[in-house]
């Protein structure tokens, strides 16, 4: 995917030089291996800082809400879907955006690589054709790229941007996968097992709110966890509070979540928070036939209704 870098720079240069946009949002090369930094450039002389490889997992749509200027934005499949959601939710106007689409082959899960390296950080990492190599001290590790993909990328069915003004490469083949095997596994458990499963899942939570803040959908001026009158959820590490946070956070992104995986990627303690959101995604697909961020002129499922919506348990 590094080959996209040149095309991204070219596009950014053209857009800025022709004054089509005021800024371009993309990534610049990170200061440590397997990390890149979201970056905003304002002038042509900065375009060579733009960079692309398989470590651009953070969702750039997160930087769009309420921007007043004209923005060029580099967007992979999931970013583009979140841009669609932002447009639907009036966070940004389509006319303000110039979308540089990136057909994506999945992003690397840094955590998985670190685990494979027994927690030892690499000093150097390189992407080869289909492979990833990391080096530090005596440990020189090369593995299949697919082995290190983020969980959400493995089951991604929208690798190509759904909306764009230009593409930096040929469209890639979309995967035909069953997205919900893990959800079904949990559904098959007994209620008590499910409760315990989630209790264990969120046990290491620090309440740093990185999952919330990395999420492009979380743009409320005041989040419910910060509300004081009433205080919906306590501030301590009490497990009911932590659970309330995760539960309501997940519910808040119902019908909007594109499964971009930014939440899991950001989590410092490796909680698979997508286990909450994917259930909602599955239900919404089954009940209302809706997939978030795919069609630009369809109201999100919780902002509309059909007279004959299923109501299995209403008396």
């Amino acid at each position: 995917m590094r080959a996209y870098t040149g095309r991204i720079r070219e596009a950014a240069k053209r857009l800025l030089a022709e004054n089509r946009v005021d800024v371009v949002i993309g990534f610049r090369k990170g200061t440590i291996p397997l990390m890149n930094e979201p970056y905003l450039i304002k002038s042509v002389d900065q375009v060579n800082q733009l960079y692309w490889d398989s470590n651009c997992g953070i969702n750039l749509a997160n930087y769009l809400p309420k921007r007043p200027d004209r923005v060029g934005i580099v967007a992979k499949g999931c970013d583009s879907r979140n841009i669609v959601v932002h447009i639907l939710e009036n966070q940004i106007k389509r006319e303000q955006l110039y979308i540089i689409g990136v057909p994506c082959k999945g992003m690397l899960d840094r955590r998985r690589i670190m685990a494979e390296r027994n927690g030892r950080e690499p000093l150097f990492a390189e992407e080869l054709e289909h492979k990833v190599r990391t080096v530090r001290y005596e440990l020189d590790l090369t593995r299949d790229r697919n082995y290190f993909l983020q969980d959400n990328c493995r089951i991604c069915t929208h690798r190509n941007p759904v909306i764009y003004d230009e593409l930096v490469g040929d469209l890639v083949e979309e995967q035909q996968v069953d997205r919900y095997t893990d959800v079904r596994k949990i559904e098959a458990m007994s209620a008590e097992e499910r409760w315990e499963h989630f209790e264990k899942l969120i046990e290491p939570c620090l309440r740093c709110y990185a999952c919330r803040n990395a999420c492009p959908l979380c743009y409320c001026p005041t989040c419910f966890v910060d509300e004081a009158r009433p205080q919906w959820v306590g501030k301590s590490l009490d497990k009911t509070d932590t659970r309330t946070f995760h539960f309501l956070r997940a519910f808040h992104v119902a019908g909007r979540c594109t499964d971009c995986g930014a939440c899991e990627r950001a989590c410092p303690v490796g909680i698979q928070v997508r286990q909450f959101t994917k259930k909602m995604e599955k239900d919404i697909k089954e009940l209302y036939g809706y997939e978030a961020g795919v069609i630009a002129d369809e109201r999100p499922p919780l902002d509309t209704y059909r007279p004959g919506d299923p109501e299995p348990f209403f008396k």
Partner: peptide
């Protein structure tokens, strides 16, 4: 620009000592 204002840096930091009382 890139900061998402999560608390990871402060919560993981050994020298960040700020607290809140509730």
């Amino acid at each position: 620009f890139s900061c998402i204002n999560c608390g990871i840096c402060t919560f993981l930091c050994p020298t960040c000592w700020c607290f809140d009382i509730q």
